[in-house]
C-alpha cells in the first residue's frame, strides 16, 4: 500500500529538482514502513518548503529560516515522532544560519533535508549562501562578492554525526541516503544538489550530471578526515553519498526523562504534582 500520497498538481516548474526529491522522500518513508501518523515534516518558506503542500502527511510549515527550531520543539515534545526538517539553501543556511549551527551542536534526532540549488527560487533568482563567487544574479548584478558557504564542511567541523550529499538526478542513491538519515539516531544532514531551471543557468542538470560521482559503497564512513576532504571537494568532481556516519548521545537522551516512557505529549498533567515545590519558599 502506498501512503504519503502525492498531489498531482504542484507550483514547481517543469524540470525542477523538487518533484524528484519529493518522490525520493515518499519512497524512503514507504520503504521504511513508517506509519504516517508518526511522521512530521517541518518546512520553512521557499520553493523547497512547499513540499508539505504536495504530500499527504503531518506537517508544520512555519517561517523562512525557522524550520529547525520548530522541528526541535516537536521532537522534544514527542520523541516517538520521526521528524524531517526540509527546506532550501537560502532558508537553512542564510536566514536560519544560527539555527543550523545550534541544531548540529544539539545532535537532536531529526533528519534535515536541504534542497541546495544555489539560488533563491521563490523570490526570483537572488544569490543564496551557496552561490558561487562572481555569479551574476538579479541583485548581485556585478557578481556575487561573498565566498560561498560550505554546509557539509561546516557540519563536520561542528560535530555532526551524519553528513551526506545527494543529487536530485540520482534517485536510487537519494532514497538510500534518506533512509539512512531517517534511521540515524541523531542529527542527520543531507545536502541535496538540484537544478533550478529558471533562475540558475550555471548549475544546470547537465552541469551536475557531469560532476557528481557517488562515493565507493565500501568507503569508511567513520573516517572524518576523508569525509571533510569529500565535503570540500567542489570542482570537476563532486562526490555524493554518505560522507560520514558516527552515532553519539543525542540531545533528547541527555535529559534522561524524555525517552524511555510515554512521550511528554502523552504524559498526564496534575497541578498537585507541583505542590511540593512550595517547600522551597517556606
Amino acid at each position: 500500500m502506498t501512503v504519503y500520497q502525492l498531489t498531482e498538481e504542484t507550483a514547481w516548474c517543469p524540470g525542477c529538482g523538487n518533484p524528484m526529491i519529493r518522490r525520493a522522500v515518499q519512497q524512503a518513508l514507504n520503504e521504511l514502513g513508517l506509519p504516517p501518523e508518526q511522521v512530521v515534516m517541518v518546512a520553512g518558506i521557499g520553493q523547497a518548503a512547499k513540499m508539505p503542500q504536495y504530500i499527504e502527511m503531518n506537517s508544520f510549515t512555519g517561517l523562512h529560516g525557522r524550520s529547525l527550531p520548530a522541528a526541535i520543539g516537536i521532537k522534544l515534545a514527542n520523541t516517538e515522532l520521526t521528524v524531517i526538517a526540509q527546506s532550501g539553501d537560502g532558508d537553512n543556511y542564510g536566514e536560519g544560519g544560527n539555527h543550523f549551527i545550534s541544531a548540529i551542536r544539539r545532535n537532536i534526532d531529526i533528519a534535515h533535508f536541504v534542497h541546495d540549488n544555489q539560488v533563491y527560487g521563490l523570490t526570483k533568482g537572488q544569490a543564496s549562501p551557496t552561490t558561487a563567487q562572481g555569479q551574476i544574479t538579479s541583485v548581485q548584478s556585478g557578481g556575487v562578492k561573498a565566498m560561498p558557504f560550505h554546509p557539509l564542511a561546516m557540519a563536520l567541523v561542528t560535530g555532526a554525526g551524519f553528513v551526506a550529499r545527494g543529487f536530485s538526478g540520482d534517485h536510487e542513491q537519494l532514497v538510500t541516503i534518506m533512509k539512512a538519515a531517517l534511521q540515524f539516531k541523531g542529527y542527520a544532514l543531507v545536502d541535496i544538489l538540484q537544478p533550478c531551471v529558471v533562475w540558475n543557468k550555471i548549475n544546470t542538470f547537465q552541469w551536475y550530471k557531469k560532476r557528481v560521482q557517488p562515493l565507493d559503497d565500501n568507503h569508511d564512513t567513520s573516517n572524518w578526515d576523508f569525509a571533510f576532504a569529500a565535503a570540500r571537494q567542489w570542482g570537476e568532481v563532486i562526490p555524493t553519498g554518505i560522507l560520514y556516519q558516527v552515532e553519539k548521545p543525542t540531545y533528547d537522551e541527555q535529559y534522561g526523562f524524555i525517552t524511555g516512557s510515554a512521550p511528554l505529549a502523552a504524559r498526564e498533567l496534575a497541578p498537585q504534582q507541583a505542590e511540593p515545590l512550595l517547600q522551597r519558599f517556606y
Binding site: R66, A71, I72, G73, I101, S102
Partner: peptide, 23 residues
C-alpha cells in the same frame, strides 16, 4: 524540558513546535 536556546527567535519557534506536538 528546559532549554537555553541560541536566540529568542528560535525560542518562540521551538515553543510553537512543542505546542503543535501536544505539550
Amino acid at each position: 524540558v528546559v532549554d537555553q536556546v541560541e536566540d529568542e527567535v528560535a525560542a518562540l519557534n521551538m515553543a510553537l513546535g512543542a505546542s503543535y506536538a501536544g505539550v
